[in-house]
Design a protein around this nucleic acid. Sequence first.
DNA 1: TTCCAAAATGACCCACGGGTCAGTTATACT
DNA 2: AGTATAACTGACCCGTGGGTCATTTTGGAA
Lengths: 195, 195
Amino acid sequence: MRQPTPGRREDILQAARQVFAREGHAGTRIQEVADACGIAKGTVYLYYRSKEELYWATVCHGFEELHRRSREALLAADGTEGKLRAFILTRLRFFDEERDFFRIYFSELGRSFVRFVPDAQLQELYQAQVEVLRTILDEGISRGEMRPVNAESTAYLILDLVRSRVAQRLHQGIRTRPEDELEDLFSFLWQGVGQ
Amino acid sequence: MRQPTPGRREDILQAARQVFAREGHAGTRIQEVADACGIAKGTVYLYYRSKEELYWATVCHGFEELHRRSREALLAADGTEGKLRAFILTRLRFFDEERDFFRIYFSELGRSFVRFVPDAQLQELYQAQVEVLRTILDEGISRGEMRPVNAESTAYLILDLVRSRVAQRLHQGIRTRPEDELEDLFSFLWQGVGQ
DNA sequence: TTCCAAAATGACCCACGGGTCAGTTATACT
DNA sequence: AGTATAACTGACCCGTGGGTCATTTTGGAA
């Protein structure tokens, strides 16, 4: 009896991330993923039932990691300002490391908008993301550290602010350190552009 | 001799907008566009050379209109605050009217991010958008009405703020008037969430 | 060394949809 | 009415790529 090749599933996932990031969902051919792994196309289908399943596995894997790190950063930091800074910095750093995932994440938002794709796990992860941020905002408001804004819709704005900035950075080649972007983004978020 | 059917190109463009908005670029079949027009598939190809050309025509058409209205609003309004309010409100209203276009616009951003698509006209339109906003911000800064932020990267943030909010509104069914969203967004932009 | 079950392979199948074009239809002009 | 010309039609062509499966390879157990 032969043992299943250890780490094969992870190898495929990693190759898929590269190819999906470069070619997009529609542009990706399973053959290319297999080539990137140095295995045959059929082997991919021994580990993932379909292209769709592989795609979702890729997206969810990155999302989980992002969520995990964001949550940890929030727990470790003190005060509303500190928590927001930590949240933003963590995400800037994560996307700096995982640029392939960011490309997929970015394009997935657009995809999910035109064709409602009810992947339960991903919906949950995204909502959890918003929820954790909303909680911080509500605390900040009740402590009088923040203006009484609508916490939920502001949470969405913050997620998109970070995404927007990361996209900018990737488009024009990353020049600054995440730490510098943090100051810029945070002052925009905290003080606005007025006065 | 028969005259070319007047408005046929525009009819196809309108149908294409509906279908692309609902099905996305990859999910759209030319047959569906033809059906939505009540014409045969071959006829579509008499007016547009390929699916790709039809798609770009759809995107560019909406973009031009958006840009035209944004620019007009900026010219008509007074002062930095006034111009920014006018810019945001115009876009909120435009996307409220042209929801199909917004879906395409939103998904196109994701698409263009994974596969660099060098459509010269669209690149130009997007840059013009940023440029016009950057000018307003630079004026506001030199007049001392604003903090000395980086005008260009702030312009990107503002575009994405509006996009983010419109996406939220569409996702959870539009409940508020654009005028109310304006106040919310503008105070976020101008004062931030702090204090 | 032999055997066998599980892993891996890649030629093949076929649904799909972009694009074509020979044939049909409509209309302007004579 | 007749005709020429251009718009329109939709059956058809065919490249593409997701997914399959008979065959081969591998490696642990006897």
